[in-house]
Structures are given as C-alpha cells and as structure tokens.
Write a protein that binds this DNA or RNA. Structure first.
Lengths: 361, 361
DNA sequence: GTGAAAGCGCTAACAT
DNA sequence: ATGTTAGCGCTTTCAC
C-alpha cells in the first residue's frame, strides 16, 4: 500500500552535492550567498527585510533562496539573540474542557504576538511528574512558562521553577509568589447557589470536583458560605472527579432522596451525569429537581434540558496569561506576583425552576 | 483587585550578579567551568553523562552547576546537532473533541520518545492561514510536522510543505503523496447506518459535517452507499457544522416530519442537538426516533438517552502519527506515502431501537 | 581523564 | 550598498 517514489534526495534542484556525502544538510545562508554571489551578511539583510539592499541584489538573493529551498534556522537565530520566541505550556493530559479552551486561547494570543507554544503534557498529577515537566521545559528553548493545572500540586514545585524564567499560573492560590490569572470561582459558585435559593429551594446539594483541585475547593467553599449566609442547611459534600460518570453515581443517590430539589455540580459534565440519573429515576428536571453546572461548555445548551450554568471566560484567561507573561519577558526586573481575577456570570437556561409545592413529591 | 506584593526580583538566592550588568544572561557552560575550575569541555561531558570523567571532578562540576543554576541551552545544542527534538503540530483553533484527543495522544507519544511539541494554531480554515502556519513551522525548530485538520485544505498546500521536512497528516486523502493516518470513517458510518437498518428502520436520515471536511465527506458517502446497498431510499443530506446548535436546527425540522424514525449524525455534538430538538417536540428517543452519533466523546454515555455512537480511537491515531513521523525522521530517505487505517466500532447504548409499529405515529 | 580548537548558522558592529 | 569579523553556547575531534 505504501508507494515509494524513486529515490532522489529530498533536496532537489541542487545536484551540486558531493556524491560522498549522503547526510542531508539543510541549506544555510552561506549556500544561498554562494549561489547568489553575495556575502551571507547580505542574505541576512534580505531575510530580515532591511532596506539597505539593492533591489537587484535582493531579487537575486530571493531567487537563490527559492531555488535551494532555504529556511532560516531558528536555533542559530535563538542562539544569537538569546530569545526563542517560544512559550512553554505545562498542562495535564486528557485535560478538561476548560483547560483545552484555555490552551487554545493561550496559543492564539501567543501566535498573535509572534510566539510559538511548546506543549509539555503531564500524564499524572504527581509532584514528580510536574517537576520533571518544568525541568524539561527549562531545558527547552522557551522564554517563559504558563502552567495550567490543579494548583495543589504547585505547593512544592516552586523550588523547581528555574531561576529567572517568567512564569504565569492559571487558577492557583500561589498569587503571593507568582503571577496568577484566576477565574472568579467564588462569585460563580455564589451566583449558582444563590440563584437556586432565590428560586425557593430550601437548600442546595453540591457535587464537588476532586479534593486535589484548587478551583473545586473554592467553588465548594463558596457554595457552603452562601448556604450559611442564607441560613440554609449544609448537606454533606459529594465528591466527584469532573467526569460525567461520577456525577451519575452521586445523581443516583440524590435521585432516590425525595428531599433533594436542587443540585449544584462543580462542572457541566457532572451536572450532565446528575441529570441522566434523575431522568432514569423518573425525576423531572427542572420540575422536581433543579440542576446547575459550571463552565458553560459549548454543548451545555443542547443538554436535556438545556443547562443553567456558570460561564467561565477561558478565552480571556488565556489572553491574560500571555499578556502578563510577555510583560515579564520584556522587562525581567518587573516581577509582579499577584492575582488577576476574570469574572464569571450565570447563564440561565432550562434546568432550574422553583421547587415543587410541598407534599406533592 | 489585583494584589501586588512588595516588589522583589524573581531571582532569589543568587545575589552574585555584578552590579553594573543589569542585563540578565543565563549561565553558560563556561560559567560553570570557571567556577569549577575545569574546561567547558569537561562540563559538557558531565552534562552528557560521559563515563570518562573523574568522580571527583564530576562532583565539583555538579556542585557548580547547582550553585549558579545552570541549564543547558537547547538552541546551541540544536545548532550543533542539527536536531531539535521537537515536533510541530498544526491544528485548528477551537478544535473538536476528536482533535483535542488526538493532540493529547500525539503529545504523550512524543514526550515518551523525548520530543517536545510545538503547537501552531490556525484560526481559520483558509488556505492562506494553513500555508502561513506551515511556513512558520518550517522556520521553527522542528524535526517533523503533524497536521491535524480538515483535509480539503491540503489539496493545495503541498506546494508549501517545505522540502525534506517529514510530515504526517491525520484524516486526509493525501495518502498518495504523504504519510497519512486515517480513521476508518467508511466502516464506522456503515456500521451506524446498517445498525439502524437492521433494527427495521425504512431509511436513515443523515446530518453531515461541513462540506469542507474530508472525514465528513467519507461518512456521508458511506451512509449513502449503505442505504443504496440495502435498497433503502436516500433522504436529502442535511449539512451541519459539527456544533450541537446545527444539529438542533436540523433536528427541529426532522422532529416535525413523522416519516423520520432514524437519524445518523456525523458527530456526537450534532446528535445531541438532534435529541434536544426531538425532546422539545415531544418525540421520544428511541421509542419514536433512533439517533446515532460519531466519535464517542466522553460524555456520550451520560447524554439522555445515552448515545449509541461510533467509537474512534484517537489515542491510537496520535500514537501512530508519532511512530510514523519518527521513522521518517530517523531515516529521511525512507519517505513512505501511504495511508494507515485505524479501525472504528459501534458502541451500542440507549438511543436506538426498532421503529414504532406503522400507523402508531 | 582532561583540555584546546574549530565550527554549527546567524547577526551586530564595524569596515569599505 | 555590501563585505569582513567576531561570537552566541555547545559538542566533535584531536591532542596531551
């Protein structure tokens, strides 16, 4: 099935290579210069678009570049300039919807600023894995690092973060030592919980994210505080793992409990799992039980019923990361620890309603 | 709102810098060598774990490295070796679930092989944007390129793919010229369609992906062929854009048509949109209308009802990409155009059932 | 076991 | 407008 074309060197148009050397060397400026009959300096000038080159010479150089398929060698350029025009991103494998959106925004913002992204995936949320990733990145050619991951891990990696390399962290509590960009989890969870309370629910049950997650912790704390502030009872926390399956498991238990009329899940996937359990148990959403999620993933409004959820602006988070990082890169002295908060808001859809009248369950 | 903590330089523990030079230069091998009282050559040997270094000397060098926080400069290393240990990945922004999974697998496989990933996002599926991305990548320090995107775009970029740089393309019809790794879209779509037919449905309606997508085209063609082979009527193709919203729009029309008893959507999101429309119209899934998706995204089994869909092994695709690419990188002469097919299979869940008995609608 | 020299491809600084 | 020189940080080659 594999078609092999008749063997000819990948470099075509330059049959000048000595027959002995089978090793393939990429064309360099010197090669272009030789072909065009100029110095490599002139080639450099052409490549960098300097004005002080004769139009005639420029054309000749351009033609030569084209002929031998010249591409600037960024390693040499980086070696010379000390800049790599690359930003390293550390994040978990199989990351959540939100992380992917953030990564996307980071990549776009970086591209706009002329930076590339080097991705270092971390398979497991262990300290060693994170430390290894940071080290690999430090040896990589990067001008700065964005870390997108659960923050509890960061408690100890600061010893490992290489000296002098600008770092921005997403959703972390390390604001005292690092530049962090954080979503307003607290306000989001408050909005969600209060919305349910305002609808008339006696209390709100909560499916939390994993204990290891900083964001999850903040949402849970805010949910609890909102309940307390309203004088509502605080049900036991149900811990999930961000996946729909874990929401489903808790949802099965919740569905069996007639007391439950409102559930706030810490992300949309778990909310989806809860709704599935509710459907299976024949408990109507939202007539009997209201459900609120967190994230506002793209599919949330196609869920059944369309999910009321807390919208996170991942794009803004990504853009801010790059903005902060570039600022640090441009002026290394201006190290600015501190946290920038990106607001959240509640998106009302069809999964919430007032509780059923008492005695009707 | 942003908390700025008292300004102190990010560089701590190294107050050795000469007061005159405010420019921050990363420590080099020469610095380590000077401190350890050896030549930089010896430092190089230590860094590369060569055996012919005295244990004593090695310790001294190690200590010096530690003291000044030395990190090898990968640009210099790449310049010398001609290898970058980096693979470039070109893919669309806001990519689909599948692309993200593929990226994840590519990144993991690359990491295992000691390669980093440089991500080049492409905002728009225009030819210019793709060409620009390829060029940026070519100027980047990469040893090879993986292209993850809709394939119709590739018809014309081959002129732009830089000479001699190994390339692997995912889900493309360019197998004659490039190494491509493709999922068995045809078999997947056939399985989905045939499953519905086997259930007793007279025909199957189809929500296709965008016309520009190669994968979508293959799924649609296979759906049509399967219908024809079974002697079933072929309804008009409904074209969506991969998003749940477009599935919903077509779903509304489908729900209003009592003839419709089976729908095959070209991805899970659109299937979700269809189901939402069906629910809203009071048409029961699967009792009245069966729905099948494609992808088997992680949430699919938490949809209501849990979605029967075609499973794609994105992880395998990613792993194969790296495997093929590394083979090309290691032996540049072995250019192997050809397509490797990754199988798909149908995952039966609860969104499909036999059609309602005639005259009962 | 260790060091000295040369050069990877590029560009800033200085000629001309 | 163009060429020459030097050096970025590292490693390969050869000498000791």
């Amino acid at each position: 099935m594999a078609t092999i074309s008749p063997g000819d060197s990948a470099v075509s148009g330059v049959p000048v290579a000595p027959p002995t050397r089978s090793v393939q060397r990429l064309p360099s400026m010197a090669d272009v210069a030789a072909l065009a009959g100029v110095s490599s300096q002139t080639v450099s000038r052409v490549v960098n678009g300097r004005s002080n080159v004769d139009a005639d010479t420029r054309d000749r150089v351009l033609a030569a570049m084209d002929e031998i398929g010249y591409r600037p060698n960024s390693a040499a350029r980086a070696l010379k300039s000390g800049k790599f025009s690359t930003i390293g991103v550390i994040m978990f494998t199989l990351s959540s919807f939100g992380n992917m959106r953030t990564l996307d925004a980071v990549a776009m913002a970086a591209a706009e600023a002329g930076y590339s992204i080097t991705l270092i995936p971390v398979a497991l949320p262990t300290q060693g894995a994170v430390a290894g990733a940071v080290n690999r990145l430090a040896e990589q050619a990067v001008d700065g690092i964005v870390i997108i991951m659960e923050a509890h891990m960061l408690d100890r990696i600061d010893v490992t973060v290489p000296t002098g390399l600008p770092v921005v962290i997403v959703d972390s509590d390390a604001g005292a030592r690092y530049t962090v960009v954080d979503t307003d989890q607290t306000e989001g969870a408050r909005l969600a919980t209060q919305h349910l309370l305002d609808l008339g629910h006696k209390t709100v049950w909560h499916i939390a994210g994993p204990e290891s997650s900083f964001s999850a912790g903040r949402r849970t704390a805010s949910w609890r505080n909102t309940l307390k502030a309203a004088g509502a009872p605080v049900p036991p926390v149900l811990e999930g793992d961000w996946n729909a399956a874990s929401g489903y498991v808790h949802g099965v238990a919740l569905a069996a409990n007639p007391e439950v009329t409102a559930v706030f899940a810490s992300n949309d996937q778990m909310a989806l799992g809860v709704m599935r359990a509710l459907h299976e148990a024949g408990r109507s959403v939202p007539a009997e039980v209201s459900v609120v999620g967190f994230d506002d993933m793209r599919e949330a409004d196609a869920f059944w019923p369309p999910l009321t959820t807390v919208h996170q602006d991942f794009g803004q988070v990504g853009r801010l990361c790059i903005e902060k990082l570039l600022r640090q890169i441009d002026s290394p002295s201006a190290s600015v620890p501190g946290t920038t908060i990106v607001p959240t808001h509640l998106v009302l859809r069809a999964s919430t309603a007032p509780p059923p009248p008492p005695g009707l369950a």
